[in-house]
């Protein structure tokens, strides 16, 4: 527990002692605003104002797409950087288990993305000012976005542990995140169904984040969706620990 907290604190502080955090937060907030107000139609839900509805659906549709790129940006340095500078040898010869280190770094990155999400607070305030939205929907929406961020970061930290090259780790995690997100889209499903057996298509759809994300967006908190997200996170974090143990010295 001590090891986990120490690693987590150090990591979170290091975001804010380098320009990284500020650059990231500014870009995230600008991009999410832009996507919400301008490209709603591209996302198939209409622009924010054109909908004439006091809800945040457009916003929550935009978050996962932005996170496909921004979560790997946050996660790519977690282990690749340690490996490149050799500080991994320092970290993993302290009396800390590799799992504590992996979890500590992952949670730090997750808290960082939670801060980014929290800074979008003017959005719900705007919606409240314009009408009387369903607050429950907004809360489950944020919960869904938070869980989505965790899943992407867990995937990202796995690929970060795989290589000492941050660019490679970034590209691999973007592809993996995009796969997990888009695997559930009807158009992709139809395409896959044209040449794959139904059973395989179904299992691909079952691992997709999209269905579970959508169901949380509808305001339904179902145990199976929460378990799905947490299960995904745990699986990738454990794989990350195993990979790290195997290849830390390479």
């Amino acid at each position: 527990m001590n090891g986990f907290l120490t690693v987590c604190k150090r990591e979170l502080k290091s975001y804010f002692t380098t320009p990284l955090a500020y650059v990231f937060l500014v870009i995230f907030l600008v991009a999410i605003g832009f996507l919400t107000f301008n490209t709603g139609r591209f996302l198939g839900v209409g622009r924010f104002y054109e909908n004439r509805q006091a809800d945040m659906r457009v916003f929550f549709q935009a978050v996962p797409i932005l996170f496909i790129f921004l979560a790997p940006c946050t996660a790519m340095r977690l282990w690749a950087e340690e490996r490149r500078t050799g500080s991994i040898e320092l970290l993993l010869t302290l009396p800390i288990t590799p799992f504590q280190a992996v979890l500590g770094k992952f949670v730090a990155a997750w808290i960082f993305l939670a801060i980014a999400l929290a800074l979008t607070f003017p959005m719900p305030l705007t919606v409240c000012y314009l009408g009387s939205p369903d607050l429950g929907l907004i809360i489950t929406g944020y919960l869904a976005a938070f869980l989505m961020a965790g899943a992407y970061l867990a995937i990202g930290s796995f690929f970060s542990a795989l290589t000492k090259n941050q660019v490679i780790s970034f590209i691999l995690s973007v592809v993996a995140c995009a796969f997990f997100y888009y695997a559930g889209l009807p158009s992709i499903m139809n395409l896959l169904a044209s040449f794959l057996p139904a059973a395989i298509v179904k299992s691909i759809q079952a691992v997709s984040l999209l269905d579970h994300y959508e169901s949380l967006l509808r305001g339904v908190i179902e145990i199976k969706d929460i378990i799905y997200f947490l299960g995904l996170i745990v699986a990738w974090i454990l794989s990350c620990t195993i990979i790290l143990n195997q290849t830390k010295a390479a």
Partner: peptide, 15 residues
């Protein structure tokens, strides 16, 4: 029980 100085003395350089 060990104090260890790895080769090239790695550290977190931004700290």
């Amino acid at each position: 029980s060990i104090g260890y100085l790895p080769e090239n003395a790695p550290a977190y350089s931004e700290m």
